[in-house]
Write a protein that binds this DNA or RNA. Structure first.
Lengths: 316, 316
DNA sequence: ATCCGCAATGTATACGGTTACATCGTCCGT
DNA sequence: ACGGACGATGTAACCGTATACATTGCGGAT
């Protein structure tokens, strides 16, 4: 049985004849090694764990795609966990991974500090997605929301907008607050406006419609809208359009994310494009490197700069 | 150590005092049971494996969402495998799951027979997604592509279309051929047409554009298009629209899948809506039942009837 | 022919937990 | 006060694999 193990794992010290016999028998019984048992003696599982706030939606789909791309070449499996956005479940999910994975990719909910401790004290290599560790010890890969928001706001200013309204994302959402910060700074630096109009939102399409209705009903004077994400931008634009505003000339609209839909609405939506797939693959590659090289996991963090996708909604 | 095991697993025969001490110690050391080792002695892993042709894209995202919903309540984990559409990799992926999962949800590539044998001979419970086993022994959950295609074709006929063109999906794709079959039968029964015009396609958007251009260039007379999926339908519609045709009156267009985009294009796209989330959750529930009850896995297969989403592209 | 060395195979232990079984202690009945 | 029964804890075997170490067998050198 030891010889069988050696033969099937391609160890050198097995006679060709013996190996052939073993392989024949294995095929006959259609034997498949039990990964669970195997992972006990070897110290690896050849699996990396991914913990996300949700498993569906285009954003996560793209992340997983990137991770898969990076992981596929390395012959690893993917174990997905879903923490459904809750902090407790995050801890649970991480603990459930014990013994199943060699490393972890975690996209934490918005408050993360304590959870991260868990991950670290387990001594298991981890990379954070779109979030920075409180103590800076865990490497991360994130999209530069601040830079993206600045970029698109500056674009609106360049196009001549003077009164720009922002539809914010959910409170306590890191992405949302970074985008808002970028917006504020760009407005202050570009137009000297320190107290811009910011409407509440939650990243859902309805928030875009509500914001547009509110703007119209309140008679606010405005010439551009920067929505915290594309979903809100699209529906805001639709509502404004129905109300008779000329999008792209009279009123400029921009979003953030570059969802596929952005190209299909009329006019096409100007937005900030982040390479989400790259976010996932970069994180996975970083983790793979940590697993292979035993790197001290320091300072290797990566911030992915987004790009501006200028389309009809700001160029008439 | 036996007592510790009992205490942590909530067995009854442990003194409250002892249990408290053990739990304190466990918390102190921040002990987490090693799932790999645990799965050796128990015969379960509390994990179900999912093998899909791809991990990204909206379709798979929705499937995973459904599976996650069903699985979450049962306290199971999800192990995702990607076979990248290849038959060999499917076998590999299934084998890699040995010892890691209690059951399998498999969405096989288009030729499946032999792979299924693998799954069965391993004696591990499995449910097929959107595919029927050759020997009928493995339960499956599938969308009724045939019925959906009939339904939408009959709708086009009801709306007065006489010369309906179909843009087919990839050859060898089961979904595609079922939809084409539904189209043919509906046309034969409804209009007595036995040899309809069917243009080749591959489910990608470009195929929709190409088909539209070909129709226009060849001067074909037609008053409706049923595309094998929404992606092709959307781009076909865009191309026809640019060419000056009045979509919804002069020319009717319908698709299949009801992707979110379908509601955002102008006019909104009439299409066949399948509850993909339900596809996933139904399959997962079926598997969970098999795992729990040890059901003989027979005859429980489920075919999900799609519904028609009538929108502007067929109603002017 | 004997012995040594090396290559091939067999034996035993470890991985980390669960659980059947053995042991220990205590309380109760007589 | 003693014995039995039962409840709590300790001991050992097992899950399936990998590997350190022991053993076997063979060929070549002396």
């Amino acid at each position: 049985m030891a010889t069988a193990s050696r033969a099937l794992n391609g160890l050198s010290s097995v006679t060709a004849k013996t190996r052939a016999k073993i392989e024949a028998a294995a095929a006959e019984l259609n034997y498949v090694p039990h990964s669970g048992a195997r992972s006990l003696t070897r110290q690896r599982t050849d699996t990396i764990g991914v913990i996300l706030p949700d498993l569906f939606g285009e954003f996560f789909s793209e992340i997983v795609r990137g991770i898969d791309q990076a992981v596929q070449g390395a012959g690893k499996n993917l174990l997905l966990g879903n923490m459904h956005g809750s902090v407790e479940e995050t801890g649970q999910a991480i603990r459930a991974m014990r013994g199943r994975v060699d490393g972890l990719l975690v996209m934490p909910p918005n408050s993360s500090a304590e959870m991260l401790d868990r991950a670290l004290t387990q001594g298991i290599p981890a990379v954070l997605l779109n979030a920075q560790a409180a103590d800076g010890s865990t490497p991360f890969v994130a999209v530069d929301n601040y830079a993206g928001a600045r970029m698109v706001t500056e674009h609106l200013i360049d196009r001549g907008a003077k009164r720009i309204v922002h539809i914010a994302g959910p409170t306590n959402n890191r992405d949302a607050s970074e985008r808002e910060r970028g917006f504020r700074d760009a407005l202050k630096d570009g137009l000297g406006i320190a107290d811009p109009l910011i409407l509440p939102g939650d990243f859902r399409e309805d928030a875009g419609r509500d914001a547009a209705r509110h703007l119209i009903a309140s008679g606010t004077r405005f010439d551009a809208v920067f929505a915290g994400n594309d979903m809100m931008a699209v529906d805001c634009m639709a509502e404004l359009s129905e109300a008779g505003f000329a999008i792209g000339s009279e009123i400029l609209v921009a979003g953030f994310d570059d969802i596929p839909l952005a190209r299909y609405v009329t006019p096409q939506l100007t937005t900030v494009h982040s390479d989400i797939t790259r976010l996932g693959s970069a994180a996975a590659q970083m983790l793979l490197r940590m697993l292979a090289g035993g790197e001290p996991s320091g300072e290797a963090s990566l911030v992915i700069p987004p790009t501006l996708a200028v389309r009809g909604s700001t160029t008439g």
